[in-house]
């Protein structure tokens, strides 16, 4: 049986890389997941591409476009994950948009995710107020609907954390995904407010591009999420990206292990 989110946070600080499935191809995505698992990733976020990814900056948006242009579909992503599961039990979560799950049917989507040992789904366009749309079907299949909190969440943090499942995704900065030179939000006090309401693990994402930044974020939480900085390498190296990304991920996991 595949490992789950709890396992991902049970062994020191978690490092969570994100890649868009099908960028540059689904075959390369499969290799990438195995390589990143080898490089010490704790949990991997697999993005199912969407035509209009409204929470993404230009790097991941371009990856979504490249993937869809290749003919990637939700069913093909599931097939790819089935292949991964022949070789790896690494904890996995899907990251996509509400309409991808809604159009597939949330029960049908959750059934497939459970079969594939995918333990959570991140939907950045589904806030606390709309979570019931998906939560019941996902939970019925032991798939967590992962909640996010943002620098603007303020008094909403306790409410969100109180019902959060899997892990809590702390959005480090305003705006869309993408690398940033510095993260100015007071992440430590956000984590403190979460801790007052829940013992759920917290991972920080959006804007992290260097091992040092990741270490700083993981030191004040339970882990760091890196997306755009990795996806940029997919765009830069195309089908040759696997060794570059493996080394890149290793530089983060080494730093977090210090």
């Amino acid at each position: 049986m595949a490992k789950n989110i709890r396992d991902a946070f049970s062994n020191g600080k978690a490092f969570i890389p994100f890649i868009t499935a099908g960028d540059p191809t689904l075959e390369v995505t499969e290799e990438l997941v195995l390589a990143m698992a080898d490089a010490g990733a704790s949990l991997i976020e697999i993005g199912i591409p969407f035509s209009d990814p409204t929470a993404e900056g230009p790097v991941i948006m371009a990856a979504n476009e490249r993937s869809l242009a290749q003919g990637t579909t939700t069913d093909k992503v599931f097939e790819m994950v089935a292949n991964i599961r022949k070789h790896s039990d690494i904890p996995l979560v899907f990251m996509t948009y509400a309409n991808v799950v809604y159009s597939y049917g949330s029960d049908r989507f959750a059934t497939r995710a459970e079969e594939l040992g995918v333990s959570g789904v991140i939907l950045p366009d589904v806030p606390y107020e709309e979570r019931e749309e998906f939560k019941e079907d996902l939970n019925a299949h032991n798939v967590a609907l992962i909640s996010m909190i943002a620098p603007t969440s303020d008094e909403r943090i306790a409410m969100i954390a109180g019902e959060a499942e899997g892990f809590l995704y702390i959005v480090s900065s305003l705006g869309v995904t993408g690398t940033r030179d510095s993260i100015t939000s007071d992440i430590a006090s956000m984590v403190k407010r979460v801790r007052e309401a829940s013992d759920i693990p917290c991972a920080v994402g959006f804007g992290i591009s260097s091992p040092e930044q990741a270490k700083a974020m993981a030191d004040i939480s339970d882990g760091a999420i890196v997306g755009s900085a990795i996806v940029r390498l997919c765009g830069q190296y195309g089908k040759d990206c696997v060794p570059y990304i493996k080394d890149f991920v290793k530089s983060f996991t080494d730093k977090l292990a210090e």
Binding site: D125, P127, R131, E132, M148, P151, T152, R156, L174
Partner: peptide, 25 residues
């Protein structure tokens, strides 16, 4: 069951936006 039917027109409407914007709306 939906926890909060605010801003609905029958089954339509709602607030499907990133958490970052929730306090703004």
């Amino acid at each position: 069951m939906m926890a909060d039917r605010k801003g609905r027109f029958g089954q339509h409407g709602g607030q499907y936006i990133p958490e970052t914007l929730m306090n703004a709306v």
